[in-house]
Nucleic acid binder design. Structure first.
Lengths: 225, 225
DNA sequence: ACGCGAATGTAAGCGGCGCTTAAATATCGT
DNA sequence: ACGATATTTAAGCGCCGCTTACATTCGCGT
């Protein structure tokens, strides 16, 4: 790893990359103990510095959590972009299904980290260009896909913004049901969660299409790319 | 109020209804400061007892938060039942729309309390009969409505459980987008949030119907009951 | 080469927290 | 009336977020 030595073995007075080390330590802590279990002091301990050191880089605990959320948002956006990049088709429904696949995949792989990104009262979303910017970018990307589907007459009638919000709410609801452990009640074990979420989403997307069967076929084809 | 006197004015050594007073104080704290801002000591202060007193009734902070979640679940279930009770029709879509109206209404009126009910890692959901029981009851109620719609041939084709989960995920996603302050990004101010959520939900439900126009009409009629 | 301000870290400490324990006080069944 | 039981207090432990005062190092201009 690129991470420096621990407290006892560190040679230099200055850490060198404390900011990054603290974020990494906190990300690990988040997945170990959940967001509420995160402690600035423990992150400092793991980075091998004194308990006061982090406050040079993060004046408050919330600033540290916001940086962790930024890290998550970056990786989530990367996953979504990668999902779209590795796509042979430009069929709108195939693209939407691919976004969903990447989105759910990241949420399932990093459930607690995903919660931090979504839990707005706990982070400074509006104060972070990364968070609000990337969120806006994903929204714009999906909006463009829906607009294209409408232009190509592939989409059912209805207000475009309403449909967009509906799709987004369904995706958010599915992801949150998983990370909030609501899927247990639905007799869906964790290992089947992602497949179930994707199936629900694709069924919904097919219902949006003028030609559901064609949309299903396009989504199915894109799944193997 | 039924709440007893504060610390300085209390006459008796025993509080009398400390458990209830602590829950009430914590509910107030939750809406004031959010779940993370809740402190057992502060709840004790507001109930007028020493900081050690609560631990006779709630051995841990999580037990107190679970009791608060139970309180919320009870009221949420009451709201849903009331919404269904004041309904002249037994049309499945009208009933589903009424459930959504009551559900969203409670979530909008008690956003932070709603978060506590949903945030599973923070409460002992499985250990609470009230929480898991009421959740199962609502699920059963909705399942029965969907089954009836299918039996009456009012519902489109498709797996019933998948449709049920889809509807539930959409509702949860909408409610959580609101309480997690995601709707700001969608240019939806708080005062219009509930109407927007309901519109998105009813548009979805209409799409589930064999005859969307009839379903819309039934939902519209039920809204004035 | 070096000297000095800016940046980065340490050490110590404040008040508040969750939780535990021992003792004091009230209630209740018999 | 009284002893068993339940409730509350008081004191304290270790940890927390955050602040302040001070030590060390870096980097830049001359």
């Amino acid at each position: 790893m690129t991470s420096p030595e621990t407290a006892s073995t560190r040679a230099t007075y200055h850490h060198g990359a404390l900011r990054e080390a603290l974020i990494a330590a906190t990300v690990a802590l988040v997945e170990e103990r959940g967001a509420e279990g995160v402690t600035v002091r423990e992150a400092a301990r793991r980075a091998g510095v004194s308990s006061g050191a982090p406050f040079r880089h993060f004046p408050t605990r919330m600033a540290l959590m916001t940086a962790v959320a930024e890290e998550g948002m970056r990786k989530l956006a990367e996953a979504v972009d990668a999902g779209l990049a590795g796509l042979a088709t430009d069929d709108p429904f195939a693209r939407l299904a691919a976004i969903g696949r990447a989105y759910f995949g990241w949420a399932v792989a990093n459930p607690t980290h995903y919660r931090v990104v979504g839990d707005r009262p706990g982070i400074d979303f509006e104060g972070s260009e990364i968070l609000s910017g990337r969120a806006a970018a994903i929204r714009a990307e999906m909006g463009a896909i829906f607009a294209e589907a409408r232009a190509s007459d592939l989409l059912r009638d209805g207000d475009l913004d309403l449909i967009h919000l509906q799709a987004r709410a369904l995706a958010y609801g599915l992801a949150r049901m998983h990370v909030d452990a609501h899927l247990k009640e639905w007799a869906i074990p964790p290992e089947r969660a992602q497949a179930a979420m994707q199936a629900v989403m694709e069924d919904y997307l097919a219902g949006l299409a003028r030609d559901p069967a064609a949309a299903r076929a396009a989504m199915r084809r894109s799944a193997q790319a």
